[in-house]
């Protein structure tokens, strides 16, 4: 088992992303550090567009994740609907 992670800038929009991550990845660890939020999970972490839209109450383009993303660890798979990090 290895941990995948992402870090987001600590801002308004990121708080919705964290809520969505927490909902879709029940065992996720969220660590608030100065100006950033580090989110990690065993082996796999998925961010779903639909969940984020539900939290925000508006449409949200998954690629706009880039605006708030600080770093990632893991193999990336991105579609219109999901952004997934995983280790094999």
């Amino acid at each position: 088992m290895s941990k995948v992670y992402m870090a987001l800038q600590d801002n308004e929009e990121a708080h919705y992303l964290v809520e969505a991550l927490e909902e879709d990845n029940p065992d996720v660890t969220v660590d608030y550090q100065p100006a950033m939020i580090r989110i990690e999970n065993e082996d796999r972490l998925v961010l779903k567009r639909e969940t984020v839209e539900e939290k925000m109450g508006r449409d949200w383009d998954l690629q706009s994740l880039h605006v708030n993303l600080v770093t990632i660890g893991g193999n990336v798979d991105e579609t219109d609907d999901e952004f997934t990090l995983s280790w094999n």
Partner: peptide, 27 residues
């Protein structure tokens, strides 16, 4: 990451912002 987070912790908003903005490309 840790250095820029440190910049934030030391009141340097300009540096933490360019740092994280650069890092968003870094991903």
């Amino acid at each position: 990451v840790p250095f820029m987070s440190g910049a934030a912790y030391n009141g340097d908003m300009a540096t933490v912002t360019f740092g994280f903005s650069a890092q968003s490309d870094e991903a």
